[in-house]
């Protein structure tokens, strides 16, 4: 009974403690950022794992996102009041501003966030992080810095790929599903295109990448309680990252647009 009454207060205290520890961990990571060159080979490994290995799934999701946007836009244009070439404009703006960064971030939360949390969490519960410290390594520099650097570099690259394939998907669906030629689609695309829209997507990608990897590293680093603890950290990473992504999405839109 009392436990139920105190639950909101305890949850608030736990959350604030968690935010404090997260800030402390990130401060520790930023202090070691000037020694990035010592961890260059590790960073390159993570560039490959976070970036290159994610390209197929990013292509797949962005391709279908673009196609769905195109089909849905066409469905709304059935009234005939809006010219068909507007499909290109709708797809272009939707993909660059929202779909590419958002879909990529959500997919990467599952693919990279969960993996990082499980990896570091397993290292924690199997004393590998203690072993690193006992061998005079700073675990924050060794485990967290290279992953966050790699994500900060690769997320914008993945967003560019997602932008391209989202638009290609939209073009493909528009040409096949409705009476729009590729030239009309490109006309619509160019008509509303502003270079800042592409930059905005890349800025979002950078923030999303850092948010996902830092949350995953934090959850993994403070894992306790064996295999169950690793499972909880992985779940928490996915849930918190998804919330953080939509929150950041709004904040960045409110500030930059």
């Amino acid at each position: 009974m009392f436990r139920f009454l105190f639950y909101p207060a305890n949850l608030l205290i736990d959350s604030l403690e968690g935010v404090g520890r997260y800030v402390e961990l990130m401060a520790s990571m930023f202090r070691s950022i000037f020694s990035w060159h010592k961890y260059l080979s590790l960073t390159i490994d993570h560039l490959f794992h976070i970036g290159v290995l994610s390209i197929p799934i990013v292509i797949l999701t962005s391709l279908f996102s673009g196609m769905v946007t195109s089909v849905q836009a066409a469905y709304q244009f059935e009234s005939g009041f809006v010219p068909n070439w507007f499909v290109g404009s709708i797809v272009g703006e939707s993909v660059l501003l929202e779909l590419a960064p958002m879909m990529t971030a959500l997919v990467m939360t599952g693919r990279i966030g969960a993996t990082i949390a499980a990896e570091i969490g397993t290292m924690r519960v199997s004393e590998q992080i203690d072993a690193l410290e006992s061998l005079s390594f700073d675990p924050v520099s060794f485990l967290i810095l290279p992953r966050i650097l790699a994500a900060a570099i690769m997320f914008p690259v993945l967003i560019i790929i997602a932008d391209c394939f989202g638009i290609i998907g939209g073009l493909f669906a528009a040409v096949n599903a409705m009476d729009v030629s590729s030239l009309e689609f490109i006309r619509g695309l160019r008509n509303w295109f502003r270079p800042f829209d592409a930059w905005f997507g890349l800025i979002k990608g950078l923030f999303f990448g850092v948010a996902i990897t830092s949350i995953a590293c934090y959850q993994g680093y403070y894992t306790s309680g064996g295999a169950t603890g690793v499972g909880k950290s992985t779940t928490a990473t996915v849930v918190i990252s998804c919330v953080a992504i939509v929150f950041l999405d709004y904040i960045l839109a409110a500030i930059l647009l």
Partner: peptide, 29 residues
Amino acid sequence: RSNIGMVFQFGALFDSMTVGENISLALQK
């Protein structure tokens, strides 16, 4: 710590590294 060798209960070997890399890591550092 550079003067202390620690043997952990279950080895605490780094999963992503070979046996040789596990040992050479500390020597490189």
